[in-house]
């Protein structure tokens, strides 16, 4: 509050006032300079390299030494079949992830909330957080050991029970399920934190009143618990929708493999492949830039919708 008042003062006030204002709050500005430097160096600085998308980038001439080629690289990318496949996969995996992974923490949070035994609740909460801290590389190793067709533990058990082995990793549809549920396993526990935080603010009297009215447990969840975390759900949903076009690199790269490339190849792995492996930096930058622009459109779009629907946006 004091800050905004002070800002107004500088706008209207004279030089002396401004000087004393800075003198007074210099520590705050000093603190602020670190995050600003971070954004300048790591977020805005690299944007200098975006011009590679419009140049025939030569590794040895550097960015300035390379020729301008206009939109030629964009034409080349948009003519690539792989580009559309990876774009489709990015949307598909993100959308399915939203369907499967988004409700999981909500359900889990409500279940945790309903637990009355504090000791049990604490332990299960901690256990649920652990997968979040395991790197995808490790998870990838575990998944391969568990779900291999011939040597995986799960299939060994299935076969011992006289069932056919399921190609969890090599058939594209089975792989999709493996991919989605690995995601749930990894993130559901951690995702409960925000919902549980929102739930701590719920007035206990509401439940007592419902008890007096003879409401069942399900009724209480439906009419009290869920409505009280509704704003959190909507905010997170909007954030997730905005991220539809961006996808992490580790998960599809590590869980994916050549046999399911048709589904597992997404924009981020595509950029890695053509940029770092094939050394075609120009094309990789084009895809990256495209991804950023579509991402921006999605964020602004979902923010606009949210403002219309809920009267409140995140920007």
């Amino acid at each position: 509050m004091t800050l905004t008042k002070a800002t107004q003062a500088t706008k209207t006030g004279d030089f002396g006032k401004r000087k004393s204002y800075i003198k007074r709050y210099w520590q705050l500005y000093a603190l602020l300079s670190l995050p600003i430097a971070y954004f300048l160096i790591f977020r805005y600085g690299p944007m200098y390299g975006v011009q590679i998308a419009f140049k025939d980038f030569n590794l040895f001439q550097g960015i300035n030494g390379s020729e301008w080629i206009g939109l030629e690289a964009f034409r080349e990318v948009f003519a690539m079949n792989d580009f559309y496949i990876t774009l489709r996969n990015t949307f598909m995996l993100n959308f399915l992830d939203l369907l499967v992974s988004f409700p999981a923490p909500i359900i889990l949070a409500i279940m945790l909330y309903e637990i009355r035994n504090a000791w049990f609740k604490k332990i299960s909460q901690t256990l649920l957080y652990i997968p979040h801290f395991i790197s995808w590389v490790i998870i990838g190793g575990i998944v391969y050991q568990l779900f291999g067709t011939q040597s995986g533990m799960v299939n060994t058990v299935l076969q011992a029970m006289g069932m056919d082995a399921i190609p969890f990793l090599t058939d594209k549809n089975s792989w999709l399920i493996t991919y989605l549920f690995t995601g749930v396993w990894q993130s559901a526990g951690w995702g409960t934190i925000l919902y549980l935080a929102a739930l701590t603010g719920v007035n206990r009297e509401l439940f007592e009143a419902a008890d007096v009215d003879g409401a069942s447990r399900m009724k209480k969840i439906w009419h009290i618990t869920l409505p009280s975390i509704k704003p959190t759900i909507i905010t997170l949903l909007i954030l997730n929708l905005g991220k539809m076009v961006s996808i992490g690199f580790d998960r599809p790269y590590i869980i994916g493999n050549t046999a399911v490339r048709e589904y597992s190849d997404v924009l981020s792995t595509f950029v890695y492949r053509i940029g770092l492996e094939a050394g075609q930096y120009t094309l990789a930058t084009v895809v990256g830039l495209f991804q950023a622009i579509v991402g921006l459109v999605f964020i602004l779009g979902s923010n606009y919708i949210s403002k219309k629907v809920t009267g409140d946006g995140i920007l």
């Binding site: 590794l59 040895f60 550097g62 960015i63 940029g275 930058t285």
Partner: peptide
């Protein structure tokens, strides 16, 4: 995965080449 993160930095330093 690590290399992918390094890439951005490398592109930057490319201009000094």
């Amino acid at each position: 995965a690590a290399l992918a993160t390094v890439m951005g930095v490398a592109l930057l330093s490319g201009c000094s080449g």
